[in-house]
Amino acid sequence: MRLIVNGASHEVAAPDHERLLTTLRDRLHLTGTKLVCGRGECGACTVLLDGAPAYACLTLTAACHGREVSTIEGLAQDGELHPVQQAFIDHDALQCGFCTPGQILAAVGLLDRQPHPSEDDVRRGMSGNLCRCGTYPKIVRAVLAAAEGGAGNG
């Protein structure tokens, strides 16, 4: 089947029951998308599916035929970081970094739906992404700063 990941087309021979997370990590070697809980509880494997956040661990690859999958590896364009990525760096919104790709894609999805979120909107919108290092206060700041900078309008 054909899978479009970060704008590039791939022919993948994934069995019907294979989840997108496995296809991305083990077949396409896109290891930026992380496996943490594997059952939709933590958000670490968040990707964008036709622009909307989706848990890659709960998404069947077979259901993605012809759809646009965006992973953390494809977020920077022409060597320019996405404003959300830059905001995470600027506000130290990461520690160990393991949840970071999922956090960033969840934030990109949130700002796309809601370009000018309140602090409460950010907390609600990001509440599906767990972080054990406890970078949450900085994540809130980073997402608000990215929104301020117009990240959700592009």
Binding site: R25, D26, H29, L30, T31, G32, T33, K34, L35, T71, I72, E73, L75, A76, L81, Q85, F88, I89, D90, D92, L94, G97, F98, T100, P101, I104
Partner: peptide, 21 residues
């Protein structure tokens, strides 16, 4: 100063043990 390995972490390029293939 900013965290010096932040770029690798926000781009998914940081290689963790689980990512070694």
């Amino acid at each position: 100063d900013k965290r010096m390995d932040a770029l690798e972490k926000v781009t998914g390029e940081a290689e963790y043990t689980a990512d070694v293939q």
